[in-house]
């Protein structure tokens, strides 16, 4: 009987060691490449075939997705400022969504269930917001630590609270995606283990649940990708507008 956490393990496929660095190709990297290939490939297919005024199936799907993301960015960052962030947010959303959905195929690997992956995304976004904030406002950017309308006497109390809430943002961003994916896949594995080990007259019950929960997981894959990108937009919008 396999452990329910077995499918989160990373196996090295092609070992590569360069100067003490472990750059091996493992199953997580392969899953990431597949996600990248699906997204980049489908866009390249549409563009190579020629973007037609009467969209085909794939083209209209991608157009709807991009339109949805663009509206989201405009809503949270603003139309003027948001325009240059649309490509970044769109690739983030589509990549996370592709990785979440690939993970639902039995036997594949969910790279978003690794805290290292989601943490790298979140830390990158955090540093990016700091760079945008300092680049745009200079020293005025420290004003984000003092919310508007706070009495002067409260400022020594509010600054540490604001610093903590700033630091909590990337971590809650990373932990949310990681925890949701890990929890969902563990539940699936446990239920499937029950279905496999139980006798047939009882085993159909947990097996039915795996089917239902798989459907739920598809919804969660969309929701989590959506939440991750919405919050990225909110954080970028916050540092641009400074309240």
């Amino acid at each position: 009987m396999e452990s329910p956490l077995h499918h989160f393990e990373v196996h090295t496929i092609i070992p590569i060691h360069i100067g003490g660095l472990d750059l091996s190709i493992n199953n997580a990297v392969v899953a990431m490449w597949v996600g990248l290939a699906i997204i980049a490939g489908s866009f390249m297919l549409v563009v190579n075939r020629g973007v037609s005024p009467i969209p085909g199936k794939l083209q209209s799907l991608l157009e709807v997705a991009l339109d949805f993301i663009r509206n989201m960015v405009f809503e949270f960052i603003g139309e003027e400022e948001g325009r240059k962030y649309v490509p970044f947010i769109a690739s983030l959303f589509l990549f996370i969504l592709a990785c979440n959905l690939i993970g639902l195929i039995p036997g594949s690997y969910t790279i978003t269930s690794q805290l290292a992956v989601t943490g790298a995304f979140a830390i990158g976004i955090f540093i990016m917001t700091l760079v945008i904030g300092f680049g745009k406002h200079g020293a005025h950017f420290f004003g984000i630590l003092v919310p508007p309308g706070v009495p002067k006497i409260m400022i020594p109390l509010m600054v540490p609270i604001e610093i903590i809430s700033m630091l909590a943002r990337p971590i809650s961003l990373a932990v949310r995606l990681f925890a949701n994916m890990t929890a969902g896949h563990t539940v699936l594995a446990v239920l499937f283990g029950l279905a496999m080990t139980g006798p047939l007259w009882l085993g159909w019950l947990p097996f039915g649940f795996t089917v239902v929960i798989n459907g739920l997981e598809i919804a969660i894959a969309f929701i989590q990708a959506y939440i991750f990108t919405t919050l990225t937009c909110v954080y970028i919008g916050d540092v641009i507008k400074l309240h």
Binding site: I164, A168, I171, S172, V175, R176
Partner: peptide
């Protein structure tokens, strides 16, 4: 629920 729950937990933890 997911959003608000993690928000509160993580901030307390960081503090």
């Amino acid at each position: 629920a997911f959003r608000l729950g993690t928000e509160l937990t993580v901030a307390t933890f960081i503090g």
